[in-house]
Design a binder for these strands. Structure first.
Length: 231
DNA sequence: CACCAGGTAGATC
DNA sequence: GATCTACATGGT
């Protein structure tokens, strides 16, 4: 059970959990697409797309590249424990996500304790870009999506898929349709006959789901994992 | 020991 | 342009 004040609920959690969005309307529109979306939604009725803090989203999805979810979580936890601020709250200990300045001040050997592997240099590159102004997080928020994507991809370690995830989860661009290995497989399995280039899948999704691409992606992602398509 | 994991950058043709 | 591969770490 989550206990919170009225102020925190309205000021933080309402937006973070995307509670003001009409997911009923989104689901009924997507269900009109085809039987596949009806099945996918059926196994993820409660899915919501969180509005996550932008810097945390940037780093988290850099870490996600060619990695598995338990290890991604472990790396992020170690990053916070080693370099975030310690927070004592109601008898429990938490650690904040370290800001860009903090991470930029670290050496790669400092970062080794989080065991991010080859991604450590990309985490540093992102921190450096934010600190030196090459990547302005505030400016990103007001940029058109294609420009924001280009700006994100100018950072080493942020490619096509990671930038789409940042756009979707950190910048609220709900039309973004990140194609990872799971999405690629489920799309090939459901909508194509055999393997397809990522670009073909992206364009197909854009035509089919349009502004609801991000929601469709989430239903398909959990549907694919639930049914272990290709795993 | 081989292969894979919410990919990307750099080299090569 | 499109394709190939190394990349750290940990699990199966």
């Amino acid at each position: 059970m989550l206990y919170t004040s009225k102020e925190d609920f309205d000021g933080i959690w309402r937006h973070f959990l995307d509670l003001d969005r009409d997911y009923g309307a989104i689901k009924s529109r997507l269900r009109q697409n085809d039987e596949i979306m009806r099945s996918a939604i059926g196994c993820g009725e409660g899915i919501r797309i969180l509005n996550q803090e932008l810097w945390e989203t940037v780093v988290s999805f850099i870490i996600s590249a060619s990695n598995n979810i338990p290890r991604i979580k472990g790396i992020i936890e170690r990053l916070c424990e080693a370099f975030g601020d310690r927070i004592e709250y109601r008898g429990n200990t938490y650690y904040s996500f370290p800001d860009a300045e903090t991470i930029n001040a670290l050496s790669l050997s400092d970062l080794a304790v989080i065991r991010a592997g080859f991604r450590d240099k990309y985490i540093k590159a992102a921190a450096e870009a934010v600190v030196n102004g090459d990547l302005s997080l505030d400016t990103l928020r007001s940029m058109p999506t294609p420009e924001a994507k280009k700006a994100l991809m100018s950072v080493k370690g942020i490619g096509n898929k990671v930038s789409d995830c940042i756009l979707l989860f950190g910048l609220g661009r709900a039309d973004s349709f990140p194609v990872d290995v799971w999405i690629k497989r489920i799309m090939e399995y459901c909508y194509f006959d055999g393997e397809q280039p990522i670009k073909v899948i992206s364009e197909f999704a854009e035509n089919k789901f349009g502004a609801l691409g991000g929601y469709a992606q989430q239903y398909l992602f959990f549907y694919a994992r639930e049914n272990k398509i290709g795993a």
